[in-house]
Design a protein around this nucleic acid. Structure first.
Lengths: 298, 298
DNA sequence: GCTATCCTTTGCATTTTTGCATGTGAGTAG
DNA sequence: CTACTCACATGCAAAAATGCAAAGGATAGC
């Protein structure tokens, strides 16, 4: 029943003298602020405020109580400050290898968040459409679509992602309707360069449209997205990339849905480094939530 | 995003070393504990725990952070202690006048709660089926079904309550079915003694069954309930009283529903006394929640 | 190397909390 | 006295948090 978060609300009501004023400061509805105060008073079995028509006024017990809660507030600030200091200790270079789809459409915002909180840290994105060689220290950490089976690596699944057929709205208006896979015969297909598919997991297209080489191809997901955005064909696109191109529309959404996953791969030795663990964890959470956020917008 | 209550969860996870152990201490599901820690780490942009297969282990940053949060915990205990002391200062006698239905079926548990937290306070229930004379100081506070229109009083509505026709299950089995108001002709009616109805609001029955004097009557709601419980007739009962008699069953529940309200009446001068305000507030909340609780069980 | 165990994580149904719109009561100005 | 303002309270629908059941991962013992 007792909820420490209600102390936070209590302070603003005590200071501002009314639920409505506190609600503006807290950016919480006044009704909620009132319910939280009621809950707090019930949990503490005490009356902290006199409810006057002009607002909420502290009782004597409330005034004494406020002194203590203000001490808590000061300590809480200090506690958060201690974490800021710890963040400042994180420093140096950290290189992440990642597939170029992730590098282009997800990592920038994730990295930016991390760097805001760790100003002394430099994170480098090594965007490459191929497998990394962690052993040779090409990167401190790699993100892959297929984790390596052997080696001195630790693998952890980060998040699933989906791919859907898509094309630009203008392209769809000008060309014949696509109501089934068969209709794709009459369309330009954009995809990977077949010779250069380094990972069988990436051979998305052949699962959707067997025996059909792309008409337009690149080894780079980002380039494929640019082609789609020019309105020159149909291709499989990552949902999280689609969020960046509002004019590219998914097709056959209910009939075709490819699912893949990103895995985080690290050298086993790096597990001993708290800094490495921290960055890995921040990346994990950051990628997970950013991918989910982008995918939910469609 | 940041929620102080997560600090409370953090402490138990830090101390017990695992989500599952903390979940037992906190009596919260382990999944929730995990989600709270994730939320906290996200809000603080920090990694407080290393997630090992054996459980959650504090990082260095987490260890430092824990020190501060433990300081908060100590202060929080002191803060609550200060309210206990304030409670102990509440003392003396306090007399409440209330209608006997409320006095019998609601007030005892409310008063008991209050007294548990204010050991030096004596609360007296003056249970009377008539209007009180606050001016003469028969009571420090009165609860009424119709607030006085004049005088040096301050009135505040406490809560609505409902009345329904009801009879004992054995009575219903033995007598003819009641499917409409008309069917009541053939039944024994239990109610107030007509001459002694002190408040027109209490003339429940005549609204439900006009022109019909009760066959069995008392000036006391509690006595009426005892009659109902003997299975000797049908009467209007307070829903909150029915909760005390599982064998008394409501009748025509959808067709007949009387609604009334309790009002708290205090002498205007008493508003200056913080002790009086406190008790009034505790009674208000206590009666409100107890009436709602009892009424919801049917 | 295989099974058993322990702990965490995830999907889903339920409960709780929240915000919004509306009602209510107290004070105030005309 | 009446209309008006201000702030809080309440009902209801939407959103978030929670518990439960089951899956997933990692270790320890056999």
């Amino acid at each position: 029943m007792l909820n420490w978060d209600d102390y936070r609300i209590f302070l603003d009501v005590a200071r501002s003298g009314s639920l409505s004023a506190a609600s503006i400061i807290l950016k919480i509805d006044a009704a909620t602020v009132g319910r939280r105060i009621t809950r707090l008073e019930t949990a503490l079995n005490s009356k902290l405020f006199n409810k006057l028509p002009r607002g909420y006024q502290l009782t004597q017990a409330g005034k004494d109580f406020k002194e203590h809660i203000e001490a808590i507030e000061r300590t809480e600030k200090i506690a958060r400050g201690s974490l800021q200091k710890a963040s400042a200790n994180i420093s140096g270079n950290f290189r992440i290898g990642a597939p170029d789809g992730l590098s282009n459409f997800v990592l920038p915002v994730v990295i930016s968040n991390i760097q805001n909180h760790h100003p002394n840290l430099n994170i480098q994105i090594l965007s490459l459409p191929r497998v990394f060689n962690l052993s040779r220290r090409e990167a401190d950490l790699a993100i892959m679509v297929t984790p390596p089976k052997k080696g001195r690596f630790v693998t952890k699944k980060i998040v699933n992602y989906n791919l859907h057929l898509a094309a630009k709205n203008t392209y769809l208006e000008k060309n014949s309707q696509i109501k089934s896979k068969n209709d794709l015969k009459n369309h330009n297909i954009i995809g990977y360069i077949p010779d250069l598919i380094f990972d069988p997991t990436l051979d998305y297209l052949s699962e959707v449209i067997p025996n059909r080489a792309p008409d337009l191809s690149s080894n780079s997901v980002a380039v494929q997205m640019q082609m789609l955005n020019l309105g020159i064909g149909v291709g499989l696109a990552h949902d999280f990339a689609l969020a960046h191109f509002p004019d590219i529309i998914p097709i056959l959404k209910n009939k075709i849905n490819q699912e893949r996953a990103f895995y985080m791969v690290r050298d086993r030795d790096d597990l001993a480094s708290e800094q490495s663990n921290l960055i890995a964890s921040l990346l994990d959470n950051g990628i997970k939530s950013e991918v989910k956020r982008l995918q939910s917008n469609n």
